[in-house]
């Protein structure tokens, strides 16, 4: 390693290009851009306003900050638009019912069993449940431990069910399995057994029952596989964004809702005409001194 006359063990220091300037005690990185540093090019421009316009309105930093802010703004707006409750609904109390009114009696009691007590008292919102589920998927690698338990192994019992009960369940399962054979006369009802896909006696759906469709449907086994596919998670089921070839998002005038044709230099919102721009400047432009 030490081939040359290396005296000091110094770590390798590399300067990474950055657009930001960070303040450290006694030390500062300053981003220097373009011909700005050359006094021969911008002589006499002590005027900061002129300097700014010579840069094309905004510096990179300002543009970056603006687009980041707009992104945050859009996200906040979508969150607002999809909010279910009124803003102050969290504090909205549920009035106590008079106990005699309920058939079950004691309706005012918070829950009858420990489970329901816990459910009723939990103040979790949907976001909490979603985060919990995502964390669970990352931890176990599976969506739902409950649903996959029986397919892991037949020997390992998933529940506390006594053994003799379990045997009964398998028997009755076997009695349900031949159900698809009757498909010609009557379509199979929903929630069928998972076994019929793996079972040897897979029966093709007779063509005459599907005669009104011009296309050949996939075989019963393929369909069973589709039908038994695990449900998607909440995030997976979300509609995908439009393809990259789709037209750019439309922008509308903030004041009147017509096409947004001009961007406000100060706050980045769109307006359609001089009339709306005046209105915007007077009442709505949030960034007065940019």
């Amino acid at each position: 390693m030490a081939s040359g006359p290396l005296r000091f063990r110094t770590p390798h220091i590399e300067e990474l290009a950055t657009a930001q300037s960070r303040q450290t005690p006694g030390f500062a990185w300053v981003a220097v851009s373009g011909g700005q540093g050359d006094p021969a090019k911008n002589w006499g421009t002590s005027n900061r306003k002129r300097q700014r316009t010579s840069l094309g309105g905004q510096t990179e930093q300002q543009k970056e900050a603006l687009s980041a802010r707009q992104q945050r703004e859009i996200e906040r707006k979508i969150r607002d638009l999809s909010s279910d409750n009124s803003k102050d609904a969290r504090e909205l109390p549920i009035p106590k019912r008079d106990g005699s009114s309920s058939g079950g009696g004691g309706a005012a009691r918070p829950g009858k069993t420990t489970n329901t007590k816990r459910i009723l008292a939990s103040g979790k919102t949907f976001a909490h449940y979603l985060d919990d589920e995502e964390a669970e998927i990352i931890r176990t690698g599976r969506r739902d431990v409950d649903l996959e338990a029986p397919t892991q192994s037949a020997a390992q019992r998933p529940s506390k069910t006594p053994l003799h009960r379990r045997k009964v369940r398998e028997n009755s399962a076997a009695s349900v399995t031949p159900e698809p054979t009757t498909a010609s006369s009557r379509p199979p009802p929903k929630l069928q057994t998972a076994q019929s896909s793996s079972g040897p006696e897979v029966v093709e759906v007779p063509v005459d029952s599907l005669a009104d469709e011009s296309l050949r449907l996939p075989t019963e086994a393929e369909l069973e596989a589709l039908l038994n596919a695990p449900p998607l998670t909440y995030n997976e089921a979300r509609s995908a964004p439009p393809s990259s070839g789709a037209p750019a998002p439309r922008r509308f005038c903030e004041t009147c809702g017509y096409w947004g044709r001009v961007r406000c230099m100060k706050c980045g919102s769109m307006v359609c005409s001089v009339t709306c721009k005046d209105d915007h400047d007077q009442f709505k432009c949030l960034k007065m001194y940019a």
Binding site: D144, D146, L147, A149, P150, T151, P158, S159, T161, R169, S172, A173, A174, V176, T177, K190, L191, Q192, T193, A194, Q195, L227, N228, P231
Partner: peptide, 13 residues
Amino acid sequence: GWVRRVFAGKTGR
């Protein structure tokens, strides 16, 4: 857990 498997169509009865 069993009830959820039934509703998901994962178990025969």
